[in-house]
């Protein structure tokens, strides 16, 4: 009899822990989304270093302007051949590409978000401004480590290239430390590591390093001269203003 009681108690306890954990995971992910989207706007100089499997590096430089979650403008400044090219991301997955030599902006309709973002190891899904909590179902895995939590993210959309993302989250500030991406066969194939820094009261990823384990290819994105809440005008994100 005692055994039955203990079993029932343990089951209730287990279920409640799971419920608590689910809630915890969701609130932690929500916190992370809040940190990412905290500034009203952001300006920075971006350096992208793309390394292929032979170790050869390609460097790309751009200026970044971001307002809210969904308005993002990259203007490429280097290499010289690509200087002046701009990509503008707007809400509803609208991406515009401006090519100065053609003197016009063209809208790029991406049929698949799993495509690489301009030759990097990030996919358009990785660069999306939509909060993680809206896109993924979080599941708490553990908090064994004194400094971080481990949460599993299951994509809500069937169109995702991933079956899951294993997120490692800082315990005190709740910013991401690492994301491990798993493909359709449940094989870990990509890892992103983040180096967060606090500036002007905001936490931001100063460096993101994405490695594609299959292709032995990696991309490092470094942000410098970061400025927050500069009051960037909405006009900066108008397609017609892409031509400077």
């Amino acid at each position: 009899m005692n055994f039955i009681k203990i079993s029932i108690l343990l089951s209730i306890l287990f279920i409640s822990i799971n419920i608590i954990n689910a809630q915890d995971a969701a609130s932690l992910l929500h916190d992370m989304d809040e940190i990412i989207a905290a500034p009203k706007d952001k300006e920075a100089a971006v350096i992208m270093i793309i390394t292929d499997k032979t170790g050869k590096e390609k460097k790309r430089e751009a200026s970044l302007k971001q307002k809210g979650k969904f308005k993002k403008l990259y203007r490429y400044t280097g290499p010289e051949k690509q200087a002046g090219i701009a990509t503008l991301s707007l809400p509803d997955d609208a991406i515009w590409l401006y090519m100065p030599a053609f003197g016009k902006a063209v809208r790029i309709n991406l049929l698949s978000k799993s495509q690489a973002f301009t030759g990097t190891d990030f996919s358009h899904e990785d660069m999306s401004g939509i909060p993680y909590l809206e896109r993924y179902e979080p599941k708490f895995i553990n908090s064994i480590h004194p400094e971080h939590y481990v949460i599993e993210l299951i994509p809500k959309s069937k169109k995702s290239k991933y079956t899951k993302i294993v997120l490692t989250l800082n315990k005190t500030v709740h910013y991401p430390l690492k994301m491990e991406y798993f493909d359709k066969t449940n094989k870990h194939f990509k890892t992103a590591t983040y180096a967060y820094e606090k500036k002007e009261g905001y936490w931001y990823a100063k460096e993101v390093f994405m490695t594609n384990l299959n292709k032995k290819h990696s991309t490092k994105i470094i942000l410098t001269d970061v400025k927050f809440d500069q009051g960037i005008n909405d006009d900066e994100f108008l397609v017609e203003n892409l031509k400077q």
Partner: peptide
């Protein structure tokens, strides 16, 4: 008319 469409010939999804 809308610009260019970059994607896959067949959308797997």
């Amino acid at each position: 008319d809308y610009g260019i469409e970059v994607g896959k010939l067949v959308d797997e999804y």
